[in-house]
Design a binder for these strands. Structure first.
Length: 199
DNA sequence: TCTTCGATTGTCT
DNA sequence: GACAATCGAAGAA
């Protein structure tokens, strides 16, 4: 059984952690079945100064996990129907996190298909709320330690990703944010074909 | 207490 | 490309 990534992995600057999470494996053990996928897309949210971060207006009941220790899950409900999954980064008291926007399904495909309503496989995990649904992630998993081997939700080492295949751009769905935050290139992604080509 | 709106998705035109 | 779904958190009153 592979060990999860260590807590130290989450201590770097949010954008750096977001970049380094590409290629790693998101794992979820619920319903007695292991579901996992290779992380393809992430976004970084960096502190109260970041006009797009949930912590932009200070600490609240909802964003409290962001102010906690690194390596923990920050999962929140939005649009009245969707759960979005993040991992808290940076030392405690500095509110920052990385949102998981897409993964490449690897294990537990049957369960994912059921949870995603039998849509085509390429549509199972190509969005932050979609992957949460495919993995069975809800508020129940909020606050879990992603570096704990005993945790039902965790992140394990995956396949290293060279800079040559990493793309960056502005974050999605944050038109309300003022500049320069709206345009910060804190969204990172890799084409799924890169991993499909790996034996 | 009231109002607004979201780190989205699926459907319809 | 436009827009409804759906509800709790956050901010205003």
């Amino acid at each position: 059984m592979p060990e999860p990534l260590p807590v130290s992995f989450y201590l770097s600057r949010p954008a750096e952690v977001a970049r380094n999470l590409l290629g790693q494996r998101l794992v979820c053990d619920l319903a007695g079945q292991r579901v996992s996928g290779i992380i393809l897309e992430t976004e970084a949210y960096d502190g109260e100064e970041d006009g797009a971060c949930h912590a932009r207006s200070g600490k609240t009941k909802r964003n409290a996990p962001l102010y906690g220790a690194p390596g923990y899950a920050y999962i929140y409900f939005t649009y009245g129907m969707h759960w979005l999954t993040n991992v808290v980064v940076c030392p405690a008291d500095y509110p920052a996190g990385v949102l998981f926007r897409a993964v490449l399904p690897k294990e537990g495909l049957g369960l994912m298909q059921v949870r995603r309503g039998s849509q085509p496989r390429r549509l199972w995990c190509n969005g932050p709320a979609k992957l949460s649904q495919a993995f069975g992630i809800t508020g129940e998993q909020n606050g879990l330690a992603l570096y704990d081997p005993e945790s039902p939700l965790r992140i394990e080492a995956g396949i290293p990703v060279p800079d040559t295949v990493v793309k960056t751009g502005p974050r999605v769905g944050i038109d309300y944010a003022p500049e320069p935050w709206r345009s910060m290139p804190w969204r990172f992604w890799v084409d799924a074909n890169y991993f499909l080509a790996q034996a």
